[in-house]
């Protein structure tokens, strides 16, 4: 009995292996046709977006993708395929934004992707459509409007963020109080455990809109980072098409419309759209 069961096991494993190899064999080789033609042939463009990072990419209560990135994604689908519904949203994470491109799971990633030299070695970035810098939020009663005011004071930051790195490097005279979680850090600011908090200005804007009594005394600080769509390394056809599209869209002030539709409801009226939006792919 044992013997026959062992034989069965061997046969089953062999079959499974054979099946796997067979599937591999039968898989169609990648078509040599142009990347744009492939998308058109498929009748849809696959775009990687965030599902839980409002207001850039998120899924609303009805399960529908929304946000600044999604607004652009729909427009790209419309201009490429004639219908803004011809986009398949693939949910991505910070952890797999590169992988989905490298392994063809998506054609394009629009996931608040900050351009860095390291990342540019693995994926190709298009022209930027948004920018991000540091913002410093403080109580409206005691606003911090200049970095000089922070000397000898405690500033709240999150571990590992651009804000922490920037202040540690450029302003050693500022005492940093570091937290792991965003919510912890903002609670510390509420409790007065620091005179101000520094983080990405896009996040700061969203927070102060929900928390009256705080202001973004400094709304633009540090190195300016740009945010851009990304395509698979070497996918020049799609890269160029998206770049042209971004330039063309700039002519109709598309990204300001995007801002009005998706970011203003979250940031409120006190923020200047120019601190966030890039029009026509030109970083100013």
């Amino acid at each position: 009995m044992i013997k026959s069961m062992k034989q069965m096991a061997v046969i089953t494993l062999a079959l499974a292996l054979g099946l796997a190899l067979g599937l591999a064999w039968a898989a169609p080789a990648a078509l040599a046709a142009g990347e744009l033609d492939k998308i058109k042939a498929a009748g849809k463009i696959r775009i990687g977006v965030y599902s839980d990072k409002p207001p850039f990419g998120y899924v609303d209560a009805n399960g529908v993708n929304q946000g600044y990135d999604v607004y652009l994604a729909k427009r790209l689908a419309k201009d490429l395929l004639g219908d803004e519904s011809k986009v398949e949203f693939v949910l991505v994470e910070a952890a797999n934004r590169m992988e989905v491109l490298e392994s063809n799971k998506v054609d394009l990633v629009l996931a608040n992707f900050t351009v860095t030299a390291d990342r540019a070695k693995q994926v190709d970035f298009c022209k930027p459509y948004m920018k991000v810098a540091l913002g410093v939020v403080s109580p409206a009663k005691a606003p911090i409007t200049d970095v000089a005011q922070l000397k000898g004071q405690t500033l709240i930051v999150n571990k590992g963020t651009t804000a922490e790195i920037y202040f540690a490097k450029n302003h050693p005279e500022v005492t940093l109080s570091k937290y792991d979680q965003n919510t912890e850090a903002f609670n510390a600011l509420r409790d007065g455990r620091g005179v101000a908090l520094a983080h990405d200005n896009t996040l700061v804007f969203a927070w102060i809109n929900e928390n009256p009594g705080f202001v973004a005394g400094i709304d633009f600080l540090g190195d300016l980072d740009s945010i851009a769509p990304a395509v698979k390394k070497g996918n020049n056809e799609l890269l160029e098409w998206v770049n042209n599209e971004i330039v063309t869209l700039g002519q109709e002030n598309f990204f300001h419309k995007d801002y009005e539709a998706t970011l203003r409801p979250v940031y409120g009226d006190t923020i200047d759209p120019e601190t966030v939006v890039i029009e026509g792919g030109v970083l100013k």
Partner: peptide, 15 residues
């Protein structure tokens, strides 16, 4: 998950 989802597609176009 990486090995069986991303790698086959990346290397052999297997989805």
């Amino acid at each position: 998950l990486y090995m069986f989802y991303y790698l086959p597609d990346k290397n052999w176009g297997l989805h």
